[in-house]
Amino acid sequence: MTPLQRDLTEIMRDEMIMRDEITKLLTSEPHTVPEIAEALKVPTTEALLWLTAMRRYGLVEEVGRADANGYFKYTLVKEEN
């Protein structure tokens, strides 16, 4: 079910809530976008948008290269002391 169900503006507003959920998830181990989407029961498109914003503002980063299916794993950026 990929067709965009909601407008970008609405999806992006949700980032402020969803980033806490994603942070909780990534605390245990790095995840790909489809893994995050499945765990949080949200569309992959939306998970990517939130994750991308978290990456842009320094909260997450990718780990290594894409896997055989083309997906990167993302992890939390370690806070500097």
Partner: peptide
């Protein structure tokens, strides 16, 4: 972080 497709980051 790369050329990714917007539906799922692949």
């Amino acid at each position: 972080n790369s050329v990714l497709r917007p539906s799922d980051g692949k």
